[in-house]
Amino acid sequence: MRKLIILGLVLLAPCLWGQTLGEYVVQGKEKIASAVSSWDKDKMLSARAHFERVLALGEKEWLLNYYIAYCDYRLATYALSEEDKKSTMGFINDGLARLKRSIQQNSEFAESYALMSSLYGLKINLRPWAGFLYGPRSGRYLATALALGPSNPRVHYIQGMSSFHTPERFGGGKKKAKSVLEEAIMLFSSEDVSPLMPDWGYSEAYGWLGLCELDLGDTTSAKLHFDKALDIDPENNWVKYRLLPGLDSNESP
């Protein structure tokens, strides 16, 4: 077996040495997409490790730090679902520190601010009593993201998720989330980004829109949105194994 690996390395070496940063980024994005679809922590850790290695090459650091922070955000949600508070806080703090570095280098990239907002949102999830401290901060970062990227679908998507989790009396609610997510989906449908830039969120936006419909009592629309999510990403485990089965149990008498 070892000889096979050696042979593979020998064969791949010229290709590896010749690879550009752009190719590494695209590879990393594919790893992230696969990890998101399969809701696989190990795959996401592998994607994060990949970007961390590419970062050491010293180019496009703001973008690479953004991707690592995005992995951190995903890993924090996995850790939170496993009630591993220490790991959750570790990923959140690392993500925030990386986004601050990223913003120092490129203060115009709206998605960095949007992701900051999401990470502070996760902090509130972890420590609800600190909501009064992190809530306004999360709101400020989201407002900056919206100002910098008024037609960025991921910024609207994050705003939609934020509205979903914010009570109506504090300016959120499912109705508002629904309209923001619809706007996000419209922007996703016409999005044309460079291969290096983030392009995540389209399928999941439908997932969250479906959840809004479900909460507002429209199961039929919810199912349509979940199906649409699977049309975009047929391997989306979250929709396939959690949202749709949940819908079936809701429908059953």
Binding site: L9, L16, W17, S46, A49, E52, R53, A56, L57
Partner: peptide, 27 residues
């Protein structure tokens, strides 16, 4: 576990397993 060990002049690297072990083969 899950420690990222890699060379800084490329992207060769490995992640540690549950025993903290890693192996990197390089040319």
């Amino acid at each position: 576990q899950y420690v990222n060990v890699f060379f800084t002049d490329g992207i060769e690297g490995a992640m540690t397993d549950e025993n903290g072990r890693f192996v990197i083969e390089t040319l």
